[in-house]
Amino acid sequence: MTQFLQLDLAAMLAATFACLVCGLIGNLLLLTRQSLLGDAISHAVLPGIVLGFWVSGSRAAPPLVAGAMLAAVAAALLIALLRRLTRLEAGAAMGVVFSGFFALGIVLIEVSGAHAVDLDVDCVLYGQLEALIWPAASGPGSLLDPAALAEFPAETTTLAVVLLLTLALLAAFWKELRLACFDPDFAQAIGFAPRRMSLLVLVLVSVACVAAFWAVGSILVIAALVAPAAIARLLTDDYATQFGLSAVAAVAMGAGGYWVAALAPAAFGLGHGLNAAGMIAVVAGVLLAVAWAAGPFGRRRRLALAGGSD
């Protein structure tokens, strides 16, 4: 038990919170057939994160999130500009911009010297859940012990705060977001500013990307963004239930994936743990397959899992 608290609790919670943030936001992307935009932003935020790290010299969340938001908005504007100037289709414009931004981020990691500290390419690509440990824990009592809790990994508590903020924003703008997702023209006509709402979605997605960054790395962010919403969409036709089920799926993939990677190998006598980020994505895939196989039949399901054409 103490070993679980010391080695696994913080990481498991971090994985769960990150998947929850991404999974909830992912609904807004899936329902507007823009899941690919999530992929684009998750890559495009990298140079912003590195810049935030470089400028502040720390891994504290606020400068990284600020940098990520800047990069996400810059990438979104650049995609729009590129489409207008070159009349490229949306997918091509996104592909060019997000791979360019991601490459810029990798170069920045190298030249900024960030990799010498603890922001290296490996942790960017695969996350670093395994680094989240709580050595101050000495037993279940530590969960109520302020001194021990003070040493709880800051990444996990930051993720908890981000999750609460996300929930608050989703609840506050519940009907506005739904309207902007369903019919932006009508929203605009009645003065409900869908452009401001899509900017809010953009900011939320970039926050979610940073959040998931530490947990699962930038490659697998897209799994956390798309899978919970896609799983829920296979099971329900109701908007609120969609969000509820996606939250359940996010917890299952975050906590379940971590458990399979870190704890199951020992339980089955395997000598070493598995990569948590990879296992989270694998669990998400398995859940999606189960949802597809067991989901209600006979219902019309034209799903754009990988994002729509526009």
């Binding site: 369903f182 023209d185 908007y239 239930t241 969609q242 019309r300 034209r302």
Partner: peptide, 14 residues
């Protein structure tokens, strides 16, 4: 305003 019916995604969970 009544937009064209084809302008929205009727698969939307609403």
């Amino acid at each position: 305003y009544l937009p064209q019916r084809a302008s929205v995604d009727w698969d939307f969970p609403a």
